[in-house]
Deep mutational scan, measured.
Amino acid sequence: MTSCHIAEEHIQKVAIFGGTHGNELTGVFLVKHWLENGAEIQRTGLEVKPFITNPRAVKKCTRYIDCDLNRIFDLENLGKKMSEDLPYEVRRAQEINHLFGPKDSEDSYDIIFDLHNTTSNMGCTLILEDSRNNFLIQMFHYIKTSLAPLPCYVYLIEHPSLKYATTRSIAKYPVGIEVGPQPQGVLRADILDQMRKMIKHALDFIHHFNEGKEFPPCAIEVYKIIEKVDYPRDENGEIAAIIHPNLQDQDWKPLHPGDPMFLTLDGKTIPLGGDCTVYPVFVNEAAYYEKKEAFAKTTKLTLNAKSIRCCLH
């Protein structure tokens, strides 16, 4: 018999989150649709729960009410004593943790798909938090293969000092899905179709896995975050240069030392320094102006996964 890495157990509980950011409308629209008619997301033997994560922000069509829901799922915020004085999103995070967690427990949901849009030209993107997770690498390989020839990129946010504390991190297997470009507060049919297909293929993978299909060893190309880059700023902290036209919409493309990065209003080009080629992502993302992030630098690498098969009882 072929030796293989056996994944822990079959997958039982899956959640699909929309509206973690209330103005990213593809996930909101799909989740609302699936709450009314969820036939397309159901798979035999699998509990799939669509869920609106930040209903107040969705109602106002804004990213958040008090603070970013997708950055506060750490033990400090989840452990705060519940009171009306807490920011709305912290209270909501505790409610979500109660419903789908608790985080880092045996009772937490197996998989959470968190649906997002970006204003950046990132196409279909899967966000991975753990480079050693054979199950998710296999799932992402399946999704990428199923979507081809449509490109699907994998963004690895594993980093020693950049801690995200994402909404989906309460699950055993957290999956971020990011599709763009799409303006905030807008629905685009092409973007919706791409996100819908990503979810379909992900659920198909889980179904095949649960039925005992063995997935042979595989490898995927990923883009691992190195650092986030702020806009150049003046002495008052105001933005002093904008994304250069040569960099705009060039997510995932190589940016070499000396290539144009920013452009000042008086026409001066600010190039990339250093001696390493990087791959920019979230270029000129609207939501990241407040976070002082013009783009993120990534490096390209390959992740390998062992063969996996479900432990059938």
Rank of each mutant, 00 (worst) to 15 (best):
T2C: 14
T2H: 08
T2K: 09
T2I: 11
T2F: 08
S3T: 08
S3A: 12
C4V: 09
C4L: 12
H5Y: 12
A7D: 13
A7L: 13
E9K: 10
H10K: 09
K13F: 05
V14W: 02
A15S: 04
F17N: 02
G18H: 00
G18W: 03
G19F: 03
T20W: 04
T20S: 07
T20Y: 03
H21D: 04
H21M: 07
G22S: 14
G22V: 08
L25K: 12
L25A: 15
T26E: 02
G27S: 10
G27I: 01
V28Y: 15
V28L: 10
V28S: 10
F29N: 09
L30R: 02
L30D: 01
V31Y: 00
V31H: 00
K32Y: 06
H33F: 08
W34N: 00
W34E: 00
E36F: 15
E36N: 15
E36I: 09
G38P: 10
A39F: 11
A39W: 14
E40L: 02
I41H: 00
R43L: 04
V48S: 04
V48T: 07
K49P: 00
K49E: 08
F51L: 07
I52V: 08
I52Q: 03
I52T: 06
I52W: 02
T53I: 10
N54L: 04
P55Y: 09
P55E: 13
R56A: 15
R56M: 07
R56S: 08
R56L: 13
A57P: 04
A57C: 06
K59E: 15
C61V: 13
C61D: 10
T62E: 15
Y64Q: 11
I65E: 15
I65M: 14
I65L: 11
D66R: 05
D68K: 05
L69A: 10
N70T: 11
I72F: 10
I72D: 08
I72H: 09
F73M: 09
L75Y: 09
L75G: 14
E76S: 15
L78V: 08
G79A: 12
G79Q: 13
K80Q: 14
K81N: 10
S83N: 08
S83R: 14
E84D: 15
D85S: 10
D85V: 11
D85W: 07
L86S: 13
V90T: 12
V90S: 10
R91M: 11
R91A: 07
R91P: 11
R92C: 14
R92Q: 11
R92H: 07
A93V: 15
Q94C: 13
E95S: 09
H98V: 13
H98S: 11
H98G: 14
L99D: 12
L99R: 13
F100T: 06
G101S: 06
G101K: 07
P102M: 10
P102S: 09
K103C: 10
D104V: 08
S105K: 12
Y109I: 14
D110V: 01
D110F: 00
I111W: 01
I111D: 02
I112V: 14
D114K: 04
L115K: 02
H116R: 08
H116C: 13
N117F: 03
N117V: 04
N117R: 03
N117G: 03
T119P: 05
N121P: 03
M122L: 11
M122H: 10
G123I: 02
C124P: 11
L126W: 01
L126A: 03
L126H: 01
L128M: 12
L128K: 01
L128R: 02
D130L: 02
D130R: 03
D130M: 00
D130Q: 06
D130K: 03
S131D: 13
R132E: 08
R132K: 13
N133A: 07
N133F: 03
N133G: 01
F135N: 00
F135G: 00
L136I: 11
M139S: 01
M139T: 01
F140A: 09
F140S: 05
F140G: 04
Y142N: 03
I143W: 01
I143P: 00
I143R: 00
S146I: 05
S146D: 01
L147I: 13
P149G: 05
P149L: 02
P149F: 03
P151D: 08
P151M: 06
C152T: 07
Y153T: 07
Y153N: 12
V154M: 05
V154H: 01
L156S: 05
I157P: 15
I157W: 10
I157T: 14
P160C: 15
P160Q: 12
L162I: 12
K163I: 13
K163A: 10
Y164G: 15
Y164A: 14
Y164D: 07
A165D: 14
T166N: 15
T166G: 09
T167P: 14
R168A: 09
S169K: 08
S169Q: 10
S169V: 05
I170C: 14
I170W: 06
I170T: 06
A171H: 03
A171N: 03
A171K: 02
K172Q: 15
Y173N: 13
Y173S: 15
P174K: 12
V175E: 01
V175S: 01
V175T: 00
G176V: 10
V179G: 04
G180C: 03
Q182C: 06
P183F: 01
Q184L: 06
Q184K: 11
Q184C: 07
Q184E: 13
G185R: 05
G185D: 03
V186A: 09
V186F: 01
L187I: 11
L192Y: 08
L192H: 05
L192V: 14
L192S: 06
D193S: 15
R196Y: 01
R196N: 04
K197S: 15
M198W: 00
M198V: 15
M198F: 03
K200D: 09
K200Q: 08
H201V: 11
H201N: 11
L203K: 01
D204A: 03
F205R: 00
I206V: 15
H207A: 15
H208D: 11
N210H: 07
G212L: 04
G212S: 04
G212H: 06
K213Q: 13
K213E: 06
E214Q: 12
E214H: 12
F215N: 02
F215T: 01
P216E: 10
P216Q: 06
P216C: 04
P217T: 07
P217I: 04
C218T: 08
C218W: 00
A219F: 07
E221F: 01
V222Q: 00
V222D: 00
Y223L: 03
I225W: 10
I226Y: 08
I226V: 08
I226K: 15
E227L: 00
E227F: 01
E227G: 10
V229S: 04
V229Y: 03
Y231R: 03
P232C: 03
P232N: 02
P232R: 01
E235N: 14
E235S: 12
N236L: 15
G237E: 06
I239M: 09
I239C: 06
A240Y: 08
A241D: 02
A241I: 03
H244L: 00
H244F: 00
H244K: 00
H244E: 00
P245R: 04
P245Y: 04
N246Q: 07
N246C: 12
Q248L: 08
Q248S: 06
D251Q: 03
D251W: 03
W252V: 05
K253S: 14
P254M: 05
P254D: 06
L255H: 04
L255W: 05
L255Y: 05
H256F: 08
H256R: 13
G258I: 06
G258S: 15
G258N: 07
D259C: 06
M261H: 00
F262R: 01
F262H: 00
L263Y: 11
T264H: 08
T264C: 12
L265D: 04
D266C: 08
G267K: 08
G267T: 04
G267W: 05
K268R: 14
K268I: 15
I270Q: 06
L272N: 12
G273D: 13
G274D: 10
D275A: 10
C276F: 10
C276E: 13
T277P: 13
V278D: 02
Y279T: 05
P280C: 04
V283W: 01
V283P: 01
E285P: 03
A287G: 14
A287T: 11
A287N: 14
Y288Q: 11
Y289R: 12
Y289T: 08
E290I: 13
K291H: 10
K292A: 14
K292E: 07
A294F: 02
F295N: 01
F295A: 00
A296W: 12
A296P: 02
A296L: 09
K297N: 07
T298Y: 01
T298F: 03
T299Q: 15
T302D: 05
T302P: 04
L303M: 05
L303E: 00
L303Y: 03
L303S: 00
A305C: 06
A305H: 02
S307G: 07
R309L: 05
C310T: 06
L312D: 06
L312N: 08
H313T: 14
H313D: 11
